[in-house]
Amino acid sequence: MLEIKNLHARIAEDGTEILRGVDLKVNAGEVHAIMGPNGSGKSTLSYILAGKSDYEVTEGEIIFHGENLLELEPDERAAAGVFLAFQYPIEIPGVATMEFLKTAMNAQRKAKGQAQLSIPDFMKLVKEKSKDLNVSMDMLKRPLNVGFSGGEKKRAEILQMSLLEPSLCVLDETDSGLDIDALRIVSEGVNKLRSPERAMVVITHYQRLLDHIIPDVVHVLSKGRIVKTGGKELALELEKNGYADYIEAA
């Protein structure tokens, strides 16, 4: 589904090189974890997948569903099935969460040439998905992410993910800012979305998220390269020994 080949990228503003030849292949139905120390380029990789203009790809390619992803605008990538759950979800003052959800769903439906959702159909879907994630009606009426707690923000991200039904879910440090209960709710929400047609890339510092979302493959990213790939046991090993060996290996 997703194939990243020899990806090099830098910060557009100052030219700082962040990714130096990332190779990654993710098949439908798989969950890949990307771990690594601070500054290794994990978040950059997620932003580049989503098409943030702050970064410049200098070499390499990203093929998604057989298409060159780098040629698509961010909204086209979203409609093509790429979803990024943000580490720090952005506040949109004055826009009720519900309103935002409806606008986003209808924008993607429009891009795909589908009819707009009727209000009753939309309400039914939102109510159903909100229940699983313990998102209250009151929260849906509040402006998106404004004054949300860390847990509420992340639950709102996963709620959007479950409503937009992307084929590729990129989760950037979804566990940051979560207490144990919130971590469980969010992870359950993510696990519900695992399916043979859907791939996930889970970016995290810590093994604890991977106790809940069990990956098929674990990669270690260091200094802009994937330096080690293994099974879920690799995460446990990292938890025990730290990243030191890999920082040197890079």
């Binding site: 989503a50 098409g51 943030k52 203009s53 702050d54 605008e73 961010p74 909204d75 990538r77 979203a78 409609a79 979803f83 990024l84 943000f86 979800p89 952005i90 506040e91 949109i92 935002f100 606008t103 986003a104 924008a107 993607q108 891009a111 959007q160 937009l164």
Partner: peptide
Amino acid sequence: SDDQMFYCLQRGLD
């Protein structure tokens, strides 16, 4: 902000 714009685009809004 650019961040607000990017967030909305990422959700599929033009």
